[in-house]
């Protein structure tokens, strides 16, 4: 079966040649259709950078990225790609334009994706993410953090993608809201047969959401394991075990 997403030997770097900072080194992983795959690690481990490079937001990368077997190149992605792959960003306070209403965000997205029947689709999208049509004409400042993230998810779903990249989608939210959003994401995945790649620093969240995950440290993938291994606390590598141990604090 062709993997939904195949990343091979990917390096990602920032900055000019003489002051280059390599954020990801030799990342290789593959995500099957319908799978939910996690990327965990501490800040600066390069986990979010991988997602941004996949969707073409970072110019400096090498290696191979293929979505459903079709390789991509450079920066920027064609319409077919953007109809297949979408992304939800970490901070819903930063990912919605402060002066655009929900209606504007969604109708612009639909127009860009070349989709008609705007009114019906917006209503559908808002209902899909549990908001209802009453939210259509609100501005971001009239929404709570969880509601904003729902709008961001609706925007990502507008083009009916098959692969959704989730960059710490709940780390800026309260725990009770996190539960709601994680439930929503689980439901959406089942309903729309989505494939997820989810970045998080929270092991419990990744264990809850993902079938398999890779642990990253300083730009490298340390280990790829399944969620059961994580739950059992039985990873192969020392670093992964240390990460699990550090997630709960014990009095020294």
């Amino acid at each position: 079966m062709t993997p939904m997403l195949q990343v091979s030997d990917m390096d990602v770097w920032f900055g000019p040649p003489h002051a280059r900072v390599t954020a990801v080194k030799g990342a290789t992983f593959s995500v099957a259709p319908g799978e939910s795959f996690g990327l965990v690690g501490e800040s600066g481990s390069g986990k979010s950078t991988i997602l941004r490079a996949v969707v073409g937001l970072i110019p400096g990368w090498s290696g191979r990225i293929a979505v459903e077997g079709k390789p991509v190149a450079g920066i920027g992605r064609d319409r077919a790609f953007l109809k297949t792959v979408q992304m939800v960003f970490q901070d819903p306070y930063a990912s919605l334009h402060p002066r655009h209403s929900v209606d504007r965000v969604l109708s612009e997205t639909l127009a860009l994706q070349g989709l008609g029947d705007v009114d019906r689709r917006i209503t559908r999208l808002l209902e899909d993410v549990g908001l209802g049509r009453g939210f259509r004409f609100r501005f971001p400042h009239q929404l709570s953090g969880g509601q904003r993230q729902r709008v961001a998810i609706a925007r990502a779903l507008a083009a009916e993608p098959r692969l959704l990249l989730l960059d710490e989608p709940t780390s800026a939210l309260d725990v009770s809201v996190q539960a709601e959003i994680l439930n929503l994401l689980k439901d959406l995945r089942a309903e729309h047969q989505l494939t997820y790649v989810m970045v998080s620093h929270d092991l419990a969240v990744v264990a809850h959401m993902c079938d398999r995950l890779s642990v990253m440290q300083a730009g490298r993938i340390v280990e790829i394991m399944d969620a059961a291994t994580l739950r059992a606390g039985a990873p192969r590598e020392d670093y992964s075990r240390a990460l699990i141990a550090a997630s709960t604090w014990r009095r020294a």
Binding site: R52, V55, L57, G76, R77, R79, L82, Q86, M87, F89, Q90, D91, A94, S95, L96, H97, P98, R99, H100, E108, T109, L112, Q113, A152, R155, A158, A159
Partner: peptide, 23 residues
């Protein structure tokens, strides 16, 4: 991020400039 998000919907530079940066 909201500029990046609009890019991911296929927004070109002119639209980003006029619709997202100008406001």
């Amino acid at each position: 991020d909201y500029i990046a998000a609009a890019r991911l919907q296929g927004a070109g530079p002119a639209r980003l400039l006029v619709g997202h940066v100008w406001p």
